[in-house]
Amino acid sequence: MNRTFTFLPPLLGGAALIALIAWFLPSWNFVLAIGLAKGLPVLGLVLLMRGGLVSFGQGLYYALGGYTVGLASQYFGLKDAAALLVISAIGSALVAFVVGLLLSRYRDIFFAMLTLALSMLLYGILVKSTELGGTDGFNVHGITLFGIPLTGADRMNGLLLLIAVCVLGAINLGLFGATAFGRLLAGVRDNEIRVEYLGASADRAVLIAYVLAAVMAALGGAMSGIIVGHIDPEMAFWATSGEFVVIAILAGTGGVLAPFVAAVVLEVVRSFAYQYAPNTWQLVLGLIILALILFLPQGLSGLVRRGPRAVNAGEKS
């Protein structure tokens, strides 16, 4: 098999497994959906991390995707999920392209702080805008896919759509990683000067990666708004962007499946922690995250790398 598509079998297998779990355990549909929706912005964030960049402002595009769905459905009567997802992706890509022209010139802490500042700027606008619901946000109702309901008793349909969006997003970013610009990201992280000496543009590679990451975050926000049925300014708050960074650290940068696994694992752990330790669930969740980081410094994707190395070591011995 072409090495470009080696991620496809585990990706499709993981998607099928999530669908089976949701089918036989419908009470977990909402938790799985929230985890997968957060996995999309984390997938884009992992792409940026391959270039040595950490964005603390992915909540900006997460909120843009959610508010695009809410505004288009409430004020323009657009209820089809396919059209809403396309509009969210295009709108976020245009915003990210304009913003990325500035951000692509910065690296390290400057890049991180600028992304955080832009996200908090949107948060401030949303909180102060009574027309957009202010701090309470507003509800999203009646979203369908070609006439098929996606919420309420038909939430399974929404989860299946979300799984399809996650698979397509992972495939696109996996294929991008095999392109010239995708491979340049590692060079930007390791030695940007050498990249420029080779005649390639590091800023252009960062710009493309930033736009792709923004589209992933917007799709996640759009699907979150559809499934949850509510959007609010917290989607753009720094804590939301920080959670994406934590999940990205848990996932590692080794593959396109790990961000979704890490996001779902975190949501499941959060649910159990809140259920069995309602007064100290944040402490329990923090301890579990700390343990995962200590024992899996390369993230969940490090488990995949460790397996083949152990096999090879056994064969040599």
Results as ranks from 00 to 15, higher is better:
residue 253 T to K: 12
residue 253 T to Q: 14
residue 253 T to F: 06
residue 254 G to S: 09
residue 254 G to C: 13
residue 254 G to H: 04
residue 254 G to Y: 05
residue 254 G to V: 14
residue 255 G to H: 09
residue 255 G to T: 14
residue 255 G to R: 09
residue 255 G to Y: 07
residue 255 G to C: 12
residue 255 G to D: 15
residue 255 G to S: 15
residue 256 V to I: 14
residue 256 V to E: 13
residue 257 L to F: 10
residue 257 L to N: 11
residue 257 L to W: 09
residue 257 L to C: 04
residue 258 A to V: 06
residue 258 A to M: 12
residue 259 P to M: 03
residue 259 P to Q: 05
residue 259 P to I: 02
residue 259 P to S: 02
residue 259 P to N: 04
residue 259 P to A: 02
residue 259 P to L: 04
residue 259 P to Y: 05
residue 259 P to E: 03
residue 260 F to K: 02
residue 260 F to V: 10
residue 260 F to E: 01
residue 261 V to A: 12
residue 261 V to Y: 02
residue 261 V to N: 00
residue 262 A to R: 00
residue 262 A to P: 03
residue 263 A to S: 13
residue 263 A to H: 06
residue 263 A to R: 02
residue 263 A to I: 08
residue 263 A to G: 05
residue 263 A to E: 02
residue 264 V to F: 07
residue 264 V to G: 05
residue 264 V to D: 04
residue 265 V to S: 11
residue 265 V to M: 08
residue 265 V to E: 06
residue 266 L to C: 03
residue 267 E to N: 07
residue 267 E to A: 11
residue 267 E to M: 13
residue 267 E to L: 11
residue 268 V to H: 06
residue 269 V to W: 02
residue 269 V to T: 08
residue 269 V to P: 00
residue 269 V to Y: 00
residue 270 R to E: 05
residue 270 R to Y: 04
residue 271 S to W: 03
residue 271 S to Q: 09
residue 271 S to P: 00
residue 271 S to G: 00
residue 271 S to N: 04
residue 272 F to K: 05
residue 272 F to D: 05
residue 273 A to P: 03
residue 274 Y to T: 04
residue 274 Y to M: 05
residue 274 Y to R: 08
residue 275 Q to Y: 07
residue 275 Q to E: 12
residue 275 Q to G: 08
residue 276 Y to S: 00
residue 276 Y to D: 00
residue 277 A to P: 00
residue 277 A to S: 06
residue 277 A to G: 00
residue 277 A to E: 00
residue 277 A to I: 00
residue 277 A to T: 02
residue 278 P to Q: 14
residue 278 P to Y: 13
residue 278 P to F: 14
residue 279 N to I: 00
residue 279 N to K: 07
residue 279 N to Q: 13
residue 280 T to W: 05
residue 280 T to P: 05
residue 281 W to R: 03
residue 281 W to I: 01
residue 281 W to M: 01
residue 281 W to T: 03
residue 281 W to F: 12
residue 281 W to A: 01
residue 281 W to V: 01
residue 282 Q to R: 08
residue 282 Q to A: 03
residue 282 Q to L: 06
residue 282 Q to Y: 09
residue 282 Q to D: 10
residue 283 L to S: 08
residue 283 L to Q: 06
residue 283 L to D: 04
residue 283 L to M: 13
residue 284 V to Q: 02
residue 284 V to M: 03
residue 284 V to R: 01
residue 284 V to K: 01
residue 284 V to H: 02
residue 284 V to T: 05
residue 285 L to E: 12
residue 285 L to V: 12
residue 285 L to D: 05
residue 285 L to K: 08
residue 285 L to A: 09
residue 286 G to F: 07
residue 286 G to R: 11
residue 286 G to K: 09
residue 286 G to A: 15
residue 286 G to D: 10
residue 286 G to M: 10
residue 287 L to S: 10
residue 287 L to K: 01
residue 287 L to C: 12
residue 287 L to W: 03
residue 288 I to M: 11
residue 288 I to G: 09
residue 288 I to S: 11
residue 288 I to T: 12
residue 289 I to D: 13
residue 289 I to R: 13
residue 289 I to N: 12
residue 289 I to Y: 14
residue 289 I to A: 13
residue 289 I to W: 09
residue 290 L to S: 15
residue 290 L to D: 08
residue 291 A to Y: 11
residue 291 A to G: 15
residue 291 A to R: 11
residue 292 L to S: 10
residue 292 L to T: 11
residue 292 L to V: 15
residue 292 L to I: 15
residue 292 L to G: 15
residue 292 L to Y: 12
residue 293 I to Y: 07
residue 293 I to W: 06
residue 293 I to F: 07
